[in-house]
């Protein structure tokens, strides 16, 4: 057997462990979430495939021809966001399910990290996955549907998309923590999540529509998106701890 630390009993030798700051723990959680995803890329690939399939189905359903251009003009913003939503929901559903099933969630809950820190870290990493995916799907959408977008419209679209994603992921991760252990939890997630997103989806689709016409979002539209973000963030920080306490099944 090789020797342990130089002084004192091997396993009790103090490495002078200190409690991490919550910020340090948050950064570590986000970094390791990203490293884990990059190892296998299962979540990103699943989300990407779902997005691809949705875009292809829409491209078959809605004819891209000069005579029917007005149909596409009326529906393109909706197509884009329905695609984003379907694809991103897969990542949100997996925010806790995989970790809970493998037991890793218990390990994270045993770390000296406030539950709120764990929640915000998981929101951040899921948001990173969703935004990465959206960038890829957006380019694909422009190519498949032969669309273009001007500078001001693009900036407005990016700002509104990020504001929408924050609200979407914030409430989605919270509902994911609520549903992962339920039978049919993946379906339940969608049943609970989609109706809650209707207010921001309405606004963000309008903003996307304006963006394709080269117009920036109005202050009222952005205000609505940020207000919903604040509401969902507040709900998440209040409720998450109660959802993960007593985690890991019964005795």
């Amino acid at each position: 057997m090789s020797s342990g630390p130089q002084s004192g009993p091997q396993c009790g030798a103090s490495p002078s462990a200190t409690s991490p700051t919550q910020w340090g723990a948050y950064c570590a959680l986000v970094r390791w979430d990203w490293v884990r995803e990059m190892k296998k890329k299962t979540t990103l690939i699943s989300m990407g495939v779902m997005g691809l399939i949705t875009l292809f189905l829409f491209s078959f359903a809605i004819p891209i021809s000069s005579t029917k251009a007005e149909i596409l003009e009326d529906t393109r913003a909706g197509i884009l966001w329905v695609t984003f939503l379907f694809a991103a929901t897969i990542g949100i559903d997996r925010a806790f399910r995989n970790d809970a099933e493998s037991g890793l969630l218990e390990g994270l809950l045993l770390a000296p990290v406030e539950r709120m820190t764990l929640y915000f870290a998981r929101v951040t990493s899921t948001l990173l996955f969703v935004v990465t995916l959206q960038g890829f799907l957006f380019v694909l959408f422009l190519v498949l549907f032969n669309q273009s977008i001007s500078g001001e419209g693009l900036v407005g679209l990016i700002v509104s998309a990020i504001a929408t994603d924050v609200g979407f992921v914030t409430i989605g991760v919270l509902i994911s923590a609520m549903t992962w252990s339920l039978p049919g939890g993946d379906v339940m997630l969608r049943i609970l999540l989609f109706p809650m997103l209707l207010p921001i989806l309405n606004v963000t689709v309008e903003v996307a529509d304006r963006a394709f016409d080269g117009r920036a979002p109005t202050a009222q539209q952005l205000g609505m998106l940020f207000a919903v973000d604040a509401l969902f963030l507040g709900a998440g920080s209040l409720l998450f701890e109660h959802l993960v306490n007593d985690s890991g099944g019964s005795s």
Partner: peptide, 15 residues
């Protein structure tokens, strides 16, 4: 990292 263990690499090796 989550426990902010100093000199983690050496600690992991020894354990």
């Amino acid at each position: 990292d989550l426990h902010a263990v100093p000199d983690a690499a050496a600690r992991i090796e020894s354990l």
